[in-house]
Design a protein around this nucleic acid. Structure first.
Lengths: 153, 153
DNA sequence: ATACGTGCAAAGCCTTTGCAGGTGA
DNA sequence: TCACCTGCAAAGGCTTTGCACGTAT
């Protein structure tokens, strides 16, 4: 798992430690590329190895990694934060989300068109873009086939 | 205010009433096109006319209007929901958001490029888009001029 | 009469914070 | 030693719900 060294380096720069719990948390994300986990989900997964870990530790780790730009916090309009590996800093191309309103699954997709938009925003409105976020809400292929079900919320 | 009749029609379809409080709330949004108000902000504004209105009523109205697709709920990754008039259903063109990380101001901008993307998603992945959401995070012109300040969170 | 709406207070989530004890450098 | 980390419990913020009373049809 090559990416761990990069995590370690960023922690060191801030004089923070890679404790066993934090390592497990990062690995949970590295083992599940393209998943968007809530704090609660992460907690359940870490508990397999650290039975006594508390939510506070999970939240503190997620917050720390978010500040170090190792993780990224996302909201899908359901009131709880989710986290994913920040691929921007791991040199994989930026991606976006397809949120299915029937089954709740979140798919990803790649898109390059936005770079042009960012340039235009800087030129025409003086807005310097640091990050962007694009989400499509709708119904996924699988749900479209089943038909009939009711759209959530 | 022509749009109020459309609000009234949609309420009637669901056998819900346009009470004075609800009317005031809708007007607050109609009077402020392009603003993204939190429940708390709406509460403060309604209180000018209804001193005793409670947060519960505000939340229930916001929830109702969101379900009727008169308002739209948005999250800017700060943990609180904001609401804006759903222009999709009032036939004004869809717009998106520029969130300034220094001063917190939210600007809007128009963009048509996404329709092509939606077509491609349907064709290539069978994902039927109902709605989309595009946000750019960065620093606004005003803040860029002032320089120096620290970027939030 | 019936269904809907309101304000108040209480409860519910998700998340953060304070604290005492533990651990790594 | 010193700064950092952890689990627990308590507190915080935002939002929802239960209830009794009011109101429109």
């Amino acid at each position: 798992m090559a990416q761990l060294s990069s995590v370690y380096r960023r922690l060191e720069e801030g004089r923070r430690r890679l404790t066993p719990q934090r390592e497990r948390i990062i690995k949970i994300f590295l083992e599940r590329p393209g998943q968007h986990l809530s704090a609660e989900e992460v907690h359940q997964l870490v508990k397999r190895d650290f039975r006594d870990i508390g939510m506070a530790t999970v939240y503190r780790a997620l917050e720390l990694f978010t500040q170090l730009e190792i993780l990224q916090r996302i909201h899908f309009n359901d009131g709880r934060a989710r986290y994913e590996i920040n691929r921007h800093t791991t040199n994989v191309h930026r991606h976006h989300h397809l949120v299915c309103l029937r089954c709740g699954r979140v798919e990803e997709f790649q898109e390059d068109l936005l770079d042009d938009m960012e340039d235009r925003l800087a030129r025409e409105r003086g807005f310097q873009v640091v990050d962007h976020e694009l989400k499509f809400y709708g119904t996924c292929q699988q749900c479209n086939r089943k038909q009939g079900g009711r759209v959530l919320s």
